[in-house]
Write a protein that binds this DNA or RNA. Structure first.
Length: 510
RNA sequence: GCGCCUCUAGCUCAAUUGGCAGAGCAUCGGACUCUUAAUCCGCAGGUUCCGGGUUCAAGUCCCGGGGGGCGUACCA
């Protein structure tokens, strides 16, 4: 037993510490520093969930004779005078601590614990006469005395700002936040395991890119002093990952934090996590199967089934998902047959009839995409694979094997949101160079999101990229889907916010 | 970017038409040997986000600024 006494005789919580005339009743949100000997380690023998699982069914008033050591924070306290009931919460749940004047060492100090104090408790597992499974301390120690008052024990934090800025508090007082954020980690872990079981290998590629490419987005720019050069934070890991496929890594994936200098919304954060994977010898049909199988597997693991409810609507994630071409869906929606081979003027007329703004540099493919996004995408609930995007808007996708002007590319729409983007990869270096040149022309024409030219990538392709299927999944959105979160901030541990002026109350500095 | 909404005690929330800023929890003092957001008695706690203005009087109305939320645009 490595118990250390609370050793608080010199400064019981009801005294002013260090003789300071500090007013403990002042309403500053601060709790005066209390003087405890804090141990360097604490031997935990059970989580609260393990204690409950092992002893939850004993009879009211029973004693088990089993002693355990648990650790966590005091989250509730019911002081009865000679009896103090406290709820201890750890990463697995809560259990009641049964403090008793006759059996609990340093009972006065124990009954003076603050909500939020970290404690280690050793004691026998019992059940109270009223039937609450409890631990009756034979020894206890403070592991961290809180110096800040915890939020309302019943309402928690309702202010969104505080919730995201002080996530370390939100995680304790909001079971929903706690569960969602833990599920995020589980989803990441399950995804890795699922891919590794299928011979995919996790890799890490550079975050600093000399050219912003691999996606259409505005990049963040930074500067390296020693090399005296501007660098971009990556907007996608795509081109590096395909270099690895050229290099002979036949199945790779990366959980890539990517950065896009665009708006913030319930679905967008400037940095987010994208799973990208590349699978040599596979095409986009193989990738569709992979996606529907992965997502339905995760749904079962996280929610217990493939039918989930999101934003108060039902969604069945069981494979297989519907597959439909983009043009087919638009035709279905607006009742007009479209094709990339159409006369541009005719297409412009259709676009304008649907309030779609057409810029001068738009070709027929881009116009069709704009019409789809304006009229059709928002109507889709899914899950559905929208396939065969125009070549003009898909600079990294391989030409469709039978549909001229289109590519073998798909996006999955799930719960009305774009979940992933994938294609049979373009492998021909000359064709890729031509596509990059088209993008450069679009940039010159005013498209700030046009993809950057990457000549080393062209060189890599010249060494030979085998037929490859590639995929990018927005993991944050996947976590939102599986945890029922309607804002991306809820699935990010620390969402991007404006910097806060934190007052240092102890020194007056800021 | 733009539009709308919002900000009151540490936390959760009140405050009528512009008329003395209040309650619950937490804290502090006290009571209580089976509580479950324990209960009961008492004390204390405020830059009403910030800065101007109108007014006899501003949490409330007006102007400017800041934080946050939602919608919208770009995007995943």
């Amino acid at each position: 037993m490595t118990e250390i006494d609370p050793a608080n005789e010199t400064a019981a919580p009801d005294q002013t510490p260090n003789g300071q005339p500090e007013d403990t009743s002042s309403n500053s949100g601060r709790i005066p520093k209390r003087d405890f000997d804090i141990p360097y380690r604490y031997e935990v023998t059970a989580s609260t969930a393990e204690v409950t699982a092992a002893h939850g069914d004993i009879e009211d008033g029973a004693e088990t004779g089993v002693s355990v050591s648990v650790a966590g924070r005091i989250m509730l306290k019911r002081d009865q005078g000679k009896l103090v009931f406290a709820d201890l919460q750890d990463g697995t749940g809560r259990i009641q601590i049964f403090g008793h004047a006759k059996t609990t060492p340093d009972f006065d100090a124990f009954s003076s614990l603050f909500l939020g104090d970290w404690v280690g408790i050793t004691g026998e597992v019992i059940k109270t006469r009223r039937g609450e499974l409890s631990i009756r301390p034979s020894a206890w120690t403070i592991l961290a005395p809180t110096q800040r008052v915890f939020p309302d024990k019943f309402h928690g934090i309702s202010d969104q700002d505080t919730k995201y800025r002080q996530r370390y508090v939100d995680m304790w007082v909001s079971e929903e936040s706690n569960t969602t954020l833990r599920n995020r980690s589980r989803i990441m872990s399950l995804t890795r395991r699922w891919l590794e079981d299928r011979a995919f290998m996790e890799v890490e590629t550079p975050t600093f890119h000399g050219v912003a490419s691999g996606a259409m987005a505005r990049p963040f720019t930074t500067h390296h002093n020693a090399l005296d050069m501007d660098l971009f934070l990556r907007i996608a890991p795509e081109l590096y990952l395909k270099r690895l496929t050229v290099g002979g890594f036949e199945r790779v994936f990366e959980m890539a934090r990517v950065f896009r200098n665009e708006g913030i919304s319930t679905r967008h954060n400037p940095e987010f996590t994208m799973l990208e994977l590349y699978w040599a010898y596979a095409d986009y049909n193989d990738i569709m199967e992979l996606v529907e199988n992965l997502v339905s597997h995760l749904a079962v693991e996280i929610t217990g089934g493939t039918t989930i409810s999101y934003d108060e609507r039902e969604l069945d994630l069981a494979a297989p998902w519907r597959r439909a071409s983009m043009i087919e869906l638009v035709t279905e929606q607006i009742g007009v047959e479209l094709s990339v081979g159409m006369d541009r003027a005719e297409l412009v007329a259709i676009a304008e009839a649907h309030d779609v703004e057409v810029k001068d540099y738009y070709g027929t493919g881009k116009i069709i995409l704009e019409i789809y996004e304006k009229t059709t995408e928002g109507q889709l609930w899914g899950p559905i694979f929208v396939t065969d995007y125009p070549k003009e808007v898909s600079p990294l996708s391989r030409d469709h094997r039978s549909e001229p002007g289109l590519t073998e590319r798909f996006e999955a729409i799930v719960a009305g949101r774009e979940l992933c983007n994938a294609f049979s990869e373009l492998t021909d270096p000359d064709e890729q160079l031509a596509r990059f040149n088209d993008q450069e022309a679009e940039r010159a024409a005013g498209d700030a999101e046009a993809m950057g030219m990457d000549l080393d990538y062209i060189r890599a392709l010249e060494y030979g990229l085998p037929p490859t299927g590639g995929l990018g999944i927005g993991m944050d959105r996947l976590v939102m889907l599986l945890t029922g979160s309607t804002t991306i901030r809820d699935v990010l541990l620390f969402p991007t916010l404006r910097p806060e002026q934190v007052r240092d109350d102890s020194t007056g500095d800021s």
